[in-house]
């Protein structure tokens, strides 16, 4: 069974990294994984998104028409992807920047004040980790510990212990916010 995710936001909000960490967590958890970025000019400050598929069987398409979960870190992302979300799917909305709720009634909208929470932790840039913690809780596809392990593995060498710790706290806050 495929679990499918789209992470979307402004370039610089860290959606690419959030998706990568979920992919790493899935890998370490023994799942099949694909991570597909929208690459190109987006990486220089436009809108960015990536698609993650986690599965217990070999994955066909890394391109997903209807994601089971959407993380929308800004309004244009919500506007663009809400229509595509699978019925019964989850949409994690960054309520720090997005004032509206989901328009559809057949999907779950989960408001998380990602930027506010990150700022309260003293690390405004960790909003993406709050988002990741929230979507992990909402979907239950991998345990939060697997994501924390991925943070250590992917960021530990360059970010150092302190930043790893802040990111872990942001993951916890996001996890507990939904």
């Amino acid at each position: 069974m495929d679990s499918t995710f789209v992470f979307a936001g402004f370039g610089g909000q860290g959606v690419i990294l959030a998706g990568k960490l979920l992919a790493q967590a899935g890998t370490d958890h023994g799942l099949h994984v694909t991570w597909l970025p929208s690459y190109g000019p987006e990486m220089r400050g436009g809108t960015a998104n990536c698609t993650v598929v986690l599965s217990d069987e070999p994955i066909g398409s890394p391109v997903v028409d209807n994601p089971g979960a959407l993380v929308a870190m800004n309004l244009p992302s919500l506007d663009r992807f809400e229509k595509a979300v699978l019925a019964e799917g989850a949409v994690v909305i960054n309520s720090s920047l997005i004032s509206r709720k989901v328009e559809r009634e057949d999907i779950r909208g989960l408001a998380v004040a990602m930027n506010d929470i990150a700022v309260s932790l003293g690390s405004p840039r960790a909003a993406n980790m709050v988002a990741l913690g929230a979507v992990v809780k909402a979907t239950g596809v991998v345990p939060l510990d697997a994501v924390k392990g991925a943070v250590k593995k992917m960021l530990g060498h360059k970010a150092g212990a302190k930043l790893v710790e802040i990111n872990e706290r942001a993951l916890d806050e996001g996890y507990n916010a939904v």
Binding site: V33, W35, P62
Partner: peptide, 10 residues
């Protein structure tokens, strides 16, 4: 192709 080059997989 660009997709295979850019995407990640274990």
């Amino acid at each position: 192709d660009g997709m295979l080059g850019q995407m990640m997989e274990p």
